[in-house]
Design a binder for these strands. Structure first.
Lengths: 222, 222
DNA sequence: GCCGCCCGAAATATCGAGATTTCCGGATCA
DNA sequence: TGATCCGGAAATCTCGATATTTCGGGCGGC
């Protein structure tokens, strides 16, 4: 049967799990990641754990200090501000290029991604905020679709890296973000401007979208 | 004596050595990096080698395939074109911001970096090209100085990553690049426009600088 | 002849133990 | 009192060996 089944290594599996746990906040910023602690938490040996942590340190999600082990990358208001500023710069380029290279396929995929997002509730509970993994996935997919037509895998990789980091901040403050995000649908406005080909409006709305989240998250970091 | 001497791990040391060997071309693009081969080459065990290769795979200098080991990232004309395009986008932002945030210290450091570069010969031999590590270092330092005032460590890290990759292509084709780089000093022109605060001219010159190298390198990839 | 399968050889990935370094509390001395 | 210097405990890092997977050639079936 499957002549070439791709079997993932333990290191790759635990890399993804640790990554998810950092991005979701269940491994808190600044937490010391003792090798033995991580081994027990995920039920594996030290070698794959060390390989995973080495990868994560290059991603910037983990800090590595020679002879002193690893810790979850800390967060700060200043770091987040710089992150959002840089993200606005790079996603603005990516969105401009995506629109410049517009094609029917891309526009249709974008509309579809928005439709799926709009049909999903942000919180599983209408009252108190309850994390909804499906909304997170579709939100990620929509923002990716916006810039996916930019023509540079390099730029997309940079944007993805910053998106992950920004999502970590947003999730850490999710309980605060949620009630302040009940207004008019910013995603629809961005979609409309993009599909109309109104570059300046689309870019402006996208930047405001990120900066609004920033200001809410910053209340949590104070 | 030294109460807090920072001792580097074997993994970090070999990470830097492999990195240098890939960037300098002494480990050729596409080469299979068998663990045992790397161990013997650098005279160490498998654990630090694997940690180093895992880091390099996140840097994009090495390709990792689960259960099938590692290989030096291959090169291609298309990859290089996309890299240069993206690099122009990002360094343009960084240079614009650096000039917008201009300060005396930054301008002076930039002038100094240019001076040092201009006093160093690109080739140790006036005739045939001979790699000069000092020129490489000062060249790197000058380009870094140009954008170092942009106010974003994120953007600088992205630019550094692309600079490393682009340098690899340039070094692979160095014998061809050298004789075609004997004309008027492009670095001086970029410096002058930057110090004068002529943003558009500086950005244009910088982009042309990269694109000229690109067209020369592409002759080697054909 | 050609495709698919199987099996030995080689390479990768993981485990467990040992060598090296850091950490931290207490003792010593000015 | 405060700074410095141990010394044992704990953690990191590395090595060697083992388990698991892939690779590649040869055999048999269609």
């Amino acid at each position: 049967m499957n002549h070439q089944a791709i079997i993932r290594t333990t290191a790759t599996t635990v890399y993804e799990r640790i990554r998810d746990d950092i991005l979701s906040g269940s491994l808190a910023p600044g937490l010391k990641l003792r090798i033995e602690f991580v081994c027990e938490r995920y039920g594996i040996g030290a070698s794959p754990v060390r390989e995973a942590l080495n990868r994560l340190s290059q991603d910037g999600l983990v800090v590595r200090r020679d002879q002193r082990g690893f810790l979850v990358a800390p967060v700060s208001r200043e770091q987040f501000a710089e992150l959002v500023k840089t993200r606005c710069w790079l996603e603005s380029i990516a969105l401009r290029e995506s629109i410049a290279n517009r094609s029917t396929e891309w526009e249709e995929a974008l509309v579809l991604a928005f439709h799926r997002l709009s049909r999903t509730k942000r919180s599983l509970d209408d009252g108190a905020y309850t994390f909804n993994p499906e909304w997170e996935e579709r939100h990620r997919a929509f923002h990716h679709a916006l810039i996916s037509n930019c023509g540079s895998a390099w730029l997309l990789a940079f944007c993805a890296e910053m998106r992950d980091q920004a999502d970590r901040y947003r999730k850490l403050a999710a309980a605060r973000v949620y009630p302040q995000r009940q207004g008019p649908d910013e995603h629809r406005a961005i979609l409309d401007a993009t599909v109309e080909g109104d570059v300046e409006r689309a870019v402006g709305l996208l930047q405001n979208h990120y900066r609004k989240t920033q200001s809410i998250v910053e209340q949590d970091l104070a």
